[in-house]
């Protein structure tokens, strides 16, 4: 009997889906629109994260050593800086490398280059370029070097000049991340409410049929079964359509994104490399939401 009922539930689900085609289409469309909104937000978050991390990457601190600093003293400071867990990289440049870089950076400024020639000797000392995970960590690195024993061998630290800019960047990126997170929550709540009500309306339009089935002697599960099966089918269809639209939209948008971020196929790579968790989380969320809202809506009509 259970096997017969199970097959009948599947059959009724497909039958209802086809015979209530306009209702099914509307439900799937709303699910797809909501999923697309969520995926758009996911894409915006990915782009925002990429943008903020790119901005953070542009910030570094240069520690300029004096000409008197010995190799041992410089190595000691390099090792000391590298011992900080916040430090992502500490790149050491010799005085000659710094001079070469300076010439390269100012190759279009003959006045500066001729002034350099007039000096006759390399005015630049060895430099350590330090990058940290977070702009907020630079303060810690700089203050750790502000001790009397290092003051004689360190000429300057650029952080002092760029501190305001770093603080500003830190503040902007934090605000962007907060905004993005708040928008995600807001969209999730809107999607939840719309999907919940769509399923409730779909069930409401079939309340009389539910009542009739009960009066003919159907058990609650025999009535509920096809609707739950439909919820599963709606979820599968809407996830498949959304995945397709997101993939092709990513392909279309990637050339424009690459102009800004200098990365090929950024969005496509992001979605394909996260496809498993993105699909499974969205599938799970929509299915649970469908089943939950469907069951709650039906509970009232199953009482007859």
């Amino acid at each position: 009997m259970f096997v017969f009922s199970f097959f009948r539930i599947i059959k009724f689900a497909f039958q209802d889906l086809v015979r209530n085609f306009s209702l099914s289409l509307m439900t799937v469309m709303i699910l797809v629109l909501m999923l697309l909104s969520v995926n758009t937000l996911i894409a915006i978050r990915a782009l925002t994260n990429e943008a903020t991390s790119w901005v953070k990457e542009q910030i570094d601190v240069s520690i300029y050593f004096s000409h008197d600093a010995s190799e041992d003293q410089i190595n000691e400071i390099v090792d000391y800086i590298n011992s900080f867990p916040e430090v992502v990289s500490a790149e050491f440049h010799t005085a000659d490398q710094e001079l070469e870089k300076f010439k390269q950076d100012h190759k279009n400024s003959p006045t500066i280059l001729s002034s350099l020639d007039e000096l006759g000797e390399n005015p630049l000392g060895p430099t350590l370029v330090v990058k940290t995970r977070d702009p907020g960590d630079y303060e810690k690195i700089i203050s750790s070097l502000s001790v009397p024993e290092y003051e004689k061998i360190i000429d300057a630290k650029t952080f002092g000049d760029t501190e305001v800019v770093i603080d500003r960047v830190q503040s902007i990126t934090t605000q962007v991340e907060r905004l993005s997170f708040t928008l995600s929550i807001l969209f999730a709540v809107i999607a939840f409410i719309i999907i919940f009500n769509t399923i409730r309306v779909a069930i409401y339009t079939q309340r009389q049929e539910i009542g009739i089935k009960k009066l003919v002697g159907a058990t609650n599960w025999f009535v509920r079964g096809p609707y739950l099966m439909e919820a599963l089918i709606f979820t599968c269809i809407s996830i498949a359509i959304t995945a397709g639209v997101v993939y092709f939209s990513s392909l279309f948008l990637d050339p424009y994104v690459s102009i800004v971020f200098q990365k090929e196929a950024f969005l496509t790579n992001y979605f394909t490399s996260n496809i498993m968790w993105l699909l499974s989380v969205q599938f799970g969320a929509v299915l649970i939401l469908n089943i939950l809202s469907g069951s709650l809506a039906m509970r009232k009509y199953l009482r007859t």
């Binding site: 009997m1 009922s5 009948r8 209530n20 009739i212 089935k213 003919v216 159907a218």
Partner: peptide, 30 residues
């Protein structure tokens, strides 16, 4: 068996399916 004034037939099911439904809910064989 119950007969109602307003029929209470399932509108998306055919005559055959409406009648068969009463047996399907009871788990009768195909």
């Amino acid at each position: 068996g119950v007969i109602f004034q307003d029929f209470k037939l399932l509108p998306k099911k055919t005559v055959y399916e409406n009648v068969a439904f009463a047996l399907q809910v009871a788990g009768e064989t195909f």
